[in-house]
Design a protein around this nucleic acid. Structure first.
Lengths: 234, 234
DNA sequence: AAAAATAACTGCTTCGCGTCAGTTTTTTCC
DNA sequence: GGAAAAAACTGACGCGAAGCAGTTATTTTT
């Protein structure tokens, strides 16, 4: 009996990084249809891909780069998720009820985004069951991850939330214990629901405790086991 | 130009209450298949329908009642959503990667749940594009609502969160300004990410300010406009 | 209908964490 | 390469909200 996997803590991660490919499930005709009804656009670092409230006319496929999906209101920002390359964005617009984008997207690094006509995408969903089944799986995987993050942000305090996000960045995005952070401290704040100042203080504390090493943007996780314990116990 | 709808605040609601019916999209044969591979089970108030970590063998269709979908860990509880009758629960288990339930479900009122074999449900998704398209829309609608709630719980303070949930209960569940609350104060806390004591204090404050009337479980919203302003400004 | 258990409520205390008001460092850009 | 802008950092302060400990009310049990 694999007891641990049933009782272990609620994992949180803000990054979608599954390799459930969908393109290969299309027929040649369907692929052609996508190609004819999509364009690939380059964005520079820091550019806005789309804004909340705009009409949703495309599904975005991130061919290259790293982007954030976020909500902004007054001075309050919340980063919902990060996306790495080879992921589909904007799927929630498939629902005809949502003809406006429910969030904004902007880039952290130079990125290439293929913009797929939403009507074509809908048509493919309705005609190709394998494709649509795969999309359902993507959405479900996404939902599970959101729940974990929801728990982290509402139930844990700063130590736990920061540990969560550091582990997540290391495991899911950079796949290395040391990395150059493309996000600012303020972004880490928007991602963890803490103020910029608290991010800075907390990271210094982690550094003093020997959990991480850090010079400005370059970060290295030194004691993953302890970070995981901090993540688990909030 | 409808400016307001583009710029208005991020709505939050924890309740799924869309009437996107799915059963009617099935063929007679498919309906029969569902009927043959499902059972309807009665639950009394307060009973547990399923627990996080258990194997996901069924999709749940709530035929009657009111339930909560929640995470629990140590002494920390978080209610992810409430479901009213005629809604599908457990869709995230459709994804083969999630063979364990990612959350627990229990009832607030006497409820009737139809438990549909997950393999049959998957099969129908793969063979009936209209059905599967409808399910995608359901999932997307759900995701949008979660984002709103995510914002509420992480960016607003107690006043705003409590106003959110009261408005939501009134609009979405009871469809009336006065109602008998089946949830305890502790549940309201788990729903809004606040302590039970704070829920009590805050509700008294709302009562003293003439926003609501309240005797124990029976609640009446007196000044919806002001509650909405409180909700918006956090 | 009385006893036991659970939920609702209250006041007090504590502290986590955000805000403010700065200084220093790093990055951007002409 | 130097000026300007942005980001990183620091310390002091104060408030929002949780925790605790106890009382009252309500519901469940037998």
């Amino acid at each position: 009996m694999n007891k641990t996997s049933e009782t272990k803590g609620i994992t949180q991660c803000s990054i979608f990084d599954f390799d459930l490919s969908w393109y290969e499930l299309l027929t040649d005709e369907e692929k052609l249809l996508i190609d004819e009804h999509s364009v690939s656009i380059n964005f520079k670092k820091g550019e806005t891909v789309c804004k909340r409230g705009a009409f949703a006319s495309h599904i975005f496929f991130l061919e290259e780069g790293l982007v954030k999906v976020y909500l902004e209101e007054r001075n309050k920002n919340l980063i919902l998720t990060l996306f790495t390359k080879n992921n589909l964005l904007g799927l929630s617009s498939v629902f005809e009820g949502n003809n406006k984008l429910p969030y904004s997207v902007s880039t952290y690094t130079d990125s290439r985004v293929r913009m797929i006509d939403i009507q074509v995408f809908r048509q493919l969903l309705q005609q190709n069951p394998d494709f649509s089944y795969r999309i359902i799986n993507l959405l479900n995987e996404k939902t599970s991850q959101i729940y974990g993050r929801f728990f982290s942000l509402t139930q844990k305090q700063l130590h736990g939330r920061l540990a969560d996000i550091l582990l997540c960045l290391s495991n899911r995005i950079f796949k290395s214990k040391s990395f150059e952070l493309p996000l600012s401290r303020a972004d880490l704040g928007d991602l963890t629901g803490m103020s910029t100042e608290s991010v800075i203080r907390m990271m210094k504390e982690f550094k003093d405790d020997g959990l991480i090493d850090m010079h400005c943007k370059s970060i290295e996780l030194l004691d993953v086991a302890r970070l995981e314990r901090i993540s688990e116990f909030g």
